[in-house]
Amino acid sequence: MQVSKKTYTVQEATRKLEHYCAYQERCHQEVRKKLEGMHMIPEAIDVIIVHLLEHNFLNEERFAKTFVSGKFKIKNWGRRRLTYELKKKDVVKVNINQALREIGNEEYIEVFNGLAEKKANSIKETDKFKKRKKLINYLLYKGWESHLVYEKANEIIP
């Protein structure tokens, strides 16, 4: 039995992608993958992406700002992790830097300190070296800058 793949006209695919982009901010890479998954030919993909850009359904600068804001506020990611994740999505450096500037330094340090304190209190380790190591690994994984992490770890767990 042959399973037929659903095919789309450029108009159908464009409508589908307009909804896809309107529902949630997307980066160019996500849109391209979605269109490839719909078995669209490269020429059609380019036409649709241009349409989405022209009609403001797709805006990478807006995507980067939304991504940074969400991951920073909800997941408490630091600048290094945010940069890494956006680079993985092929977002250009200008948009990454623009989005990172949206986070105020005061707020950044406040979130970092709160996260570090909360994590330090939750680590059930009696050996202070192991406890400090666990805290450092956690904060580095979250993408916080190493100078902040080591300074804070030594301050919280002397």
Rank of each mutant, 00 (worst) to 15 (best):
M38H: 03
F112A: 07
V111W: 07
E117A: 12
S122M: 10
M38L: 00
S146N: 12
V91F: 01
N95K: 05
S69D: 04
N56C: 08
H55Y: 11
V68T: 02
K33M: 14
K124L: 11
Y108P: 09
R15M: 15
I45Q: 03
A99N: 01
R132Y: 01
I49E: 10
Y20A: 09
I96C: 04
I45G: 02
Q2S: 14
L53G: 08
R26N: 09
H39T: 08
A116V: 05
R79E: 07
K89G: 07
I136R: 14
Q11T: 12
E25C: 12
A99I: 00
L35E: 09
G104E: 02
Y8R: 03
R101A: 06
E107L: 06
V91C: 02
N154F: 09
C21F: 08
H51W: 08
W77C: 05
T9P: 07
I41H: 14
N97I: 09
C27F: 02
V149N: 01
E110Q: 14
V10I: 15
Y84I: 04
K130S: 11
I41V: 14
Y150H: 15
F112S: 02
A13Y: 06
I109R: 13
D127T: 10
L115K: 09
N59I: 02
K131Y: 11
R26I: 03
F63D: 00
N97T: 11
I103R: 03
L115G: 07
E12M: 01
K133D: 12
K142L: 15
R101P: 00
V149E: 03
G143V: 06
K5D: 13
H147E: 14
E110M: 12
E54W: 00
F57R: 01
N95A: 08
I109W: 09
E110C: 08
T9S: 02
